[in-house]
């Protein structure tokens, strides 16, 4: 099977979601879940390449919680940042759209990176084209594209590189 990694990831994700929803291991629930999962896996066989970007190694497993910690910390920081801007009477924003580059190759990596950028202080991903991301930035600093890449993307990318391709 060509994209067995994607199939495996999807199966795991669906099974975990199902167990969390029903929160029981009664036989009838397991059978119903298994039927639903098989139907979904068969129906989505074309778009499963998305999960192919996952790295399956001990190091990737180790970096996933680290990434989640970084993500949560950035989310809290970004909320404090936006709260400060909203509550300041003069509304200190300096918005604009900047183009940044990523080194991540797989669609999944770009998707996670885009989501993470959206939830970090003052940035919102608008579009992905190839290896560049268009990011709306509440407080644009400077005019240099490399500097923007450095301050928006680099922090996540290093950790994320270890988890996805």
């Amino acid at each position: 099977m060509r994209n067995w990694k994607g199939t495996f990831a999807l199966l795991f994700l669906l099974a975990a979601s199902w167990l969390l929803i029903v929160s029981s291991v009664a036989l009838v629930e397991l059978i119903a879940g298994a039927v639903a999962i098989v139907v979904i896996v068969l129906l989505t066989h074309r778009s499963r390449d998305l999960f192919g970007g996952l790295r399956l190694s001990l190091k990737a497993l180790l970096f996933t919680p680290i990434y989640l910690m970084v993500f949560l910390w950035q989310l809290i920081r970004s909320n404090l940042d936006i709260a400060r801007r909203v509550l300041t009477p003069s509304l200190p924003i300096n918005p604009g759209i900047v183009k940044v580059q990523t080194q991540l190759q797989s669609p999944l990596g770009k998707l996670i990176l885009a989501n993470s950028i959206t939830l970090t202080p003052g940035t919102l991903t608008l579009d992905i084209e190839g290896s560049s991301l268009y990011v709306h930035w509440v407080d644009v600093k400077g005019t240099d594209a490399d500097a923007a890449t450095q301050s928006i993307v680099a922090g996540f990318e290093r950790t994320l590189m270890e988890v996805v391709e």
Binding site: N79, I82, R85, V86, I93, P95, L119, L124, H136
Partner: peptide, 25 residues
């Protein structure tokens, strides 16, 4: 605060910023 941001921000992109981050957390 997210609701307040939705009211105060000047355009749809800035409102998205305030709306998404604050309501997610």
């Amino acid at each position: 605060l997210g609701g307040l941001g939705l009211i105060r921000m000047p355009d749809v992109y800035n409102r998205l910023q305030a709306g998404t981050k604050a309501t997610t957390l």
